[in-house]
Design a binder for these strands. Sequence first.
DNA 1: TCAAGGCTTGAATCGGCTC
DNA 2: GGAGCCGATTCAAGCCTTG
Lengths: 397, 397
Amino acid sequence: MGTSRTGAAGAASRISVSRTGRTAPAPRTGLKSPPSVSPSLPLDQILLGDCIANLEKLPAESVDVVFADPPYNLQLEQSLTRPDHSLVDAVDDDWDKFASFADYDAFTRAWLLGVRRVMKKNATLWVIGSYHNIFRVGAALQDLNFWLLNDIVWRKANPMPNFRGRRFTNAHETMIWASKSADAKNYTFHYEALKAGNDDVQMRSDWHLPICTGEERLKGEDGRKVHPTQKPEALLARILLSSSNPGDVVLDPFFGSGTTGAVAKKLGRHFIGLERDPAYAKAARARIDAAEQLSGVSIAAPPEKRAEVRVPFLALIEGGHVKPGETLVDERRRYTATVRADGTLALDSIVGSIHKIGSLVQGLPACNGWTFWHVKRDGKLVCIDDFRAKVRAEMAA
Amino acid sequence: MGTSRTGAAGAASRISVSRTGRTAPAPRTGLKSPPSVSPSLPLDQILLGDCIANLEKLPAESVDVVFADPPYNLQLEQSLTRPDHSLVDAVDDDWDKFASFADYDAFTRAWLLGVRRVMKKNATLWVIGSYHNIFRVGAALQDLNFWLLNDIVWRKANPMPNFRGRRFTNAHETMIWASKSADAKNYTFHYEALKAGNDDVQMRSDWHLPICTGEERLKGEDGRKVHPTQKPEALLARILLSSSNPGDVVLDPFFGSGTTGAVAKKLGRHFIGLERDPAYAKAARARIDAAEQLSGVSIAAPPEKRAEVRVPFLALIEGGHVKPGETLVDERRRYTATVRADGTLALDSIVGSIHKIGSLVQGLPACNGWTFWHVKRDGKLVCIDDFRAKVRAEMAA
DNA sequence: TCAAGGCTTGAATCGGCTC
DNA sequence: GGAGCCGATTCAAGCCTTG
C-alpha cells in the first residue's frame, strides 16, 4: 500500500492526525483489562520517512497487530526477461538476476525484523501480496521464526481481466496471518463473533470482497486515483475485527493512502502509520480526519466464551441447584453417578470430577462434564450447564 | 500426492500399466502437429523408486506438462480430536517429515532441478501445496529461474472445519503454474475453451471444487483410505484440459494414488508416474487399468461448479447495504436489535447472529433472521433478505 | 513444567425408512 | 415404487488454557 522503503532520508517527521488523538478513548468492555499502551507511542500519527529507520524508533513490544502491504517488487519482471539459460548458469553466473531477488529478500527481512521487535508477545502480523512477492515474504516469515496461522485468499469480486488471454484471470491476492512464534498461543481471534456474523458457520480462509472503487477510492484534484493499490476498507475491517480489540494499537509500516488508519479510527483502534512519500501521507491524513468513529455498541469487543468466569461444580451445590446424594445421568440415560457434598462425583468406589467420571464411563480420553451430565427436574432431564449459566447470571447481578 | 523422496533404494523398477500402453494411440485434434514423443520414454508407466534418481534417467526436454504434489512438511505436533473426542486421521507418514526448513528447501530444489531438465522448452509445471510449504516452493521456483504464470487457489467446497476455534477454517490449497523461463511464451493454454466452458467469462484464478470423497476415494481391503491426500479428479482434469493437448506427456513425480495417471488416460494424454512406495504404486496401477479413455467429443472443459450462493450477513455490511450501528426491527415493530460492525447483532449485552437474536427475542427455538429482520429505508421497512438478493446478484455478475 | 479443566465442525454420502 | 427425508458415517490437521 505504501512506499516506505530503505534508502529514504534519515530524519523522520511526524504528521499528527489531530482529530483522532488520545483524547478520544476507545470503547471498552468490562470483561478485559485495558490494553497496555506505551506512553511514548506516537498514537494515531503518520511518521514520515524511511520505514525501517522509523521502526527502530518505536519502543519494543508495543503494538498489538500489524498490517503490511509491502512493495510487490514488480520491477523484477524486467531483469528476468532474458534469453534462456541453462540452470546452473542461471544460479551461479547470472549474478544480476540473483541479486534482484536477493535485494528484495534483504529488504523483506529488514522490515520484518523491525516489525517483529515492536510487536507485543501475542501480537499478530498480516501481510498482503500477489504471486510476484508473497512466496518470498512467506518463506522469510518462516525463516525468521514467525508462526503462520493462516493464509487468507482475498477473492476479488471485480478483478482486472486478463487482456492477452494467455493466463487465468488473476482474481485474488494472498494474505498471510502470523504470530511471533509457535508458542505465542494467546493471540486475539474473535472466533465466536466471526462465526455469528457468517450465518453461524466458521469463517473460512477465502474471503469474497470487491476491490476499492467509487466513492471510497481517493482521487486527486486532477481526478486521478491518488494511490495505485488502495485497499478496500471492508478488507481492513474484517482483519481488525477478527484479530484486534477496541483500544488496540495497529501498526502499518507501508501506510500509503491510509486505509488502515481510516478503518482503525472507525473501529475504535489506535494506529501508527509509516510512510515515505509526503504526498501519500498528506492524503491519508486528510482522509483519516474526515472519518468518524462508529458508535460504541457496534464495535465493542464481542463477548468470548473463554473470558467467562469460571464456575466450579461445587458452586451448583452451594447454590442449591444440585443436591449432594443426587443422581446424575447422561442424556441417553446410559450412565449414572452420584453427587458428593464436596463437588465430586462417585461411581461405585471411584471418585472424581464431573469431567473425569464422564470420560471414564464413556471410555473416552476426555469429556466436558458440564454438557454431558443431567439431572431430573419435573420428570425431564436438565443439563447441569443450564445451572452453571444461572450461577453466572447470579454472580453478574 | 506421492512419496518419491530421496534416500530410497537406488534401483528403479518399472510397473507397466498394460492397458494404457502405446498400443492405444491418443486421439488427435486436426489443429496441431503431432507432438514429438521421445522413443525412450516409459509412457504410461509407474517408475518405482527414488523420485530424483528416476528423473535423472528420463531424457532431457521430453515431457509437456508436470503436475507435482510434493510432501507438505506439515510438522504436526500432536494428535487432534473432534468435539466428540474422536481422533482425526491425519497425515503422519514419515515421508512428510523433514528435520528443518533447510532440509525441505534442499529437497525442493533437487526435485525441481530434475523436473526442469526433462521439461520441453515450452512445457509448464503445476505444483500444489498449503501454507506450510507453498511459500518455500514458490521462492525456490523463482530462484531457479522458473517463470510464474499464475497462482491458482483451489477453494474446497467441503473442507475440514477448524475444531479448536483458534483460526480461520483452512479451506483452500494453492497451486503455482509456471513455465521454464520468462521467454518460454509458447506454452499451451486453452483460453477459448476454458472461457466457453465457464459461461463465456474468463476462467479465474480461484477454483471451487469438492475434495475427494465417496466412490472416487480409493479404499483398501480394510475399508480405510489408501492415501491420505488423494486429489480429486476434477482438479487434475481442469489442469490437463487447460494446459495440455491430447497425446501430450504428463509427468507426475509424486504419483501417490495415481489421480494424474487416471485423468491423463481418461483425457487421452500419456503419463509418467514416479512413486517411492510400492503399495501406492500398486493401487495406482489397478486404478488406472480400470479407467477408460473418454470419447473425443466429450473431452471438453468441465463447467464451473455453480458458485456457492450462501451470503453471510457480514457481506451486507461490507457491501454498504446495512450500516454498523443501525437498528434492525421485525415487521410488526415489536423487537429491535443493533447491527455490529462484525456482522453480529447486539441486544443489550447479548451478542449473536441474526438468527440467534431473532429466536431469542421471540422466545422461539429457531428463527430465520433473513426474513425476520427489517431496516427503515425512506420511511418504509425493507427486509434484509432483499439486500441478500442484491448481493447474490452482484456476486453472480 | 505438569496436570487438569473444559472447550471445540461442516459438507457430503449412504442406507434405511416413510409417504 | 420412487422421491425424499433422517440419521449415522465419513473426511479433513502446523487446532487450548489455566493454575
